[in-house]
């Protein structure tokens, strides 16, 4: 054993997550985060930009000969109705991202609000919110998603996102509540109260900064979950029939027996895109976790 002087200082530095700009810098230096970000941007942005440069005429069904393998005109082949799979992808990816964005934002913001209110103010409100959190957590959300999606006939991309977001708040709410409960016992909350800060100010300026990295990681997680939930529902035939998402691409390819007809480019394209999106977002999430929770970096 070596004698360590100024022990509290060293211990403190070890358990402190980097703050503010330092946080972003160490985030970018994190290998998982960087790789994840690069893959994600590549997969997500190419279709978004390509969409603008595509001639609207090529979006029609029958714009290309049907069931063609990848060629110069249709880089990813064409499907059974003569649409270019590549053109479909440029519509599907932004739509799927939109679902993820709306649902994750909704879930994270709602969850954070519920968690903060429940944890900080306590009392009867807390009891009520805690019970509803537990109820939402214990029923399998997928089942209710299927139920709702089946009953809301003719969903759009946006309503799909809202339905998914409706089930995305309970987990962050529970985590935020638990964190707030432990944070509010810390001395600085009392000091802030004695310094004249109001409850809302304490939540925003004293507690929120501690939660931000976690909320960021949760947002990414919810983003993946929402994209995958959309795909799952769409594959079951409950997706937005009139629009194109990654899930709907798989649904249509299944519907027209792409596998049986050996039109591999049709179903492999959305499947690979989905896997890459999910994988890259998970890496980003991991990076977030490692940077905001230095204990996780201990591993060699």
């Amino acid at each position: 054993m070596t004698v360590v002087t100024g022990q509290d200082q060293i211990a403190a530095e070890e358990t402190q997550a980097p703050k503010g700009r330092g946080f972003i810098r160490s985030l970018l230096r994190n290998r998982n985060f960087a790789i994840g970000l690069i893959i994600f941007l590549t997969v997500a942005l190419i279709p978004v930009f390509a969409r603008m440069s595509i001639d609207p005429a090529t979006r029609r069904t029958g714009a290309f000969p049907a069931r063609q393998p990848p060629s110069a005109e249709a880089p990813l082949g064409t499907e059974a109705l003569g649409q270019s799979v590549y053109v479909q992808l440029t519509e599907a990816v932004p739509n799927s991202l939109q679902v993820g964005l709306i649902a994750a934002t909704m879930g994270t913001v709602l969850g954070a609000i519920v968690g903060f209110v429940s944890g900080y103010f306590g009392g009867a409100v807390d009891t009520l919110l805690r019970i509803s959190i537990d109820v939402f957590l214990s029923v399998p959300s997928l089942l209710f998603l299927v139920l709702i999606a089946a009953l809301v006939r003719g969903v759009s991309v946006q309503s799909m996102a809202l339905i998914i977001g409706l089930f995305a708040w309970a987990w962050p709410a529970r985590q935020v509540r638990a964190q707030v409960l432990s944070l509010k016992e810390r001395g600085f909350v009392e000091i802030a109260r004695l310094s004249g800060m109001s409850g809302l100010e304490i939540v925003f300026f004293e507690l929120m900064p501690h939660m931000l990295p976690w909320l960021g990681a949760n947002f990414v997680n919810a983003f993946i979950a929402a994209i995958l939930a959309e795909a799952g529902l769409s594959i079951l035939g409950l997706g937005p029939q009139g629009e194109m998402t990654l899930g709907m691409m798989i649904y249509w390819s299944n519907n027209y027996s792409a596998m049986l007809l050996d039109l591999w480019w049709w179903w492999v394209t959305p499947v690979v895109t989905l896997i890459l999106l999910s994988f890259s977002l998970y890496l980003i999430h991991l990076g977030f976790d490692e940077v905001s929770n230095p204990r996780m970096r201990a591993e060699g």
């Binding site: 795909a231 594959i235 798989i250 299944n254 896997i275 999910s278 994988f279 998970y282």
Partner: peptide, 13 residues
Amino acid sequence: LLLYTTPYYILAL
């Protein structure tokens, strides 16, 4: 990591 991030229905396909 790849397996975990692949949704099971995709893997099923």
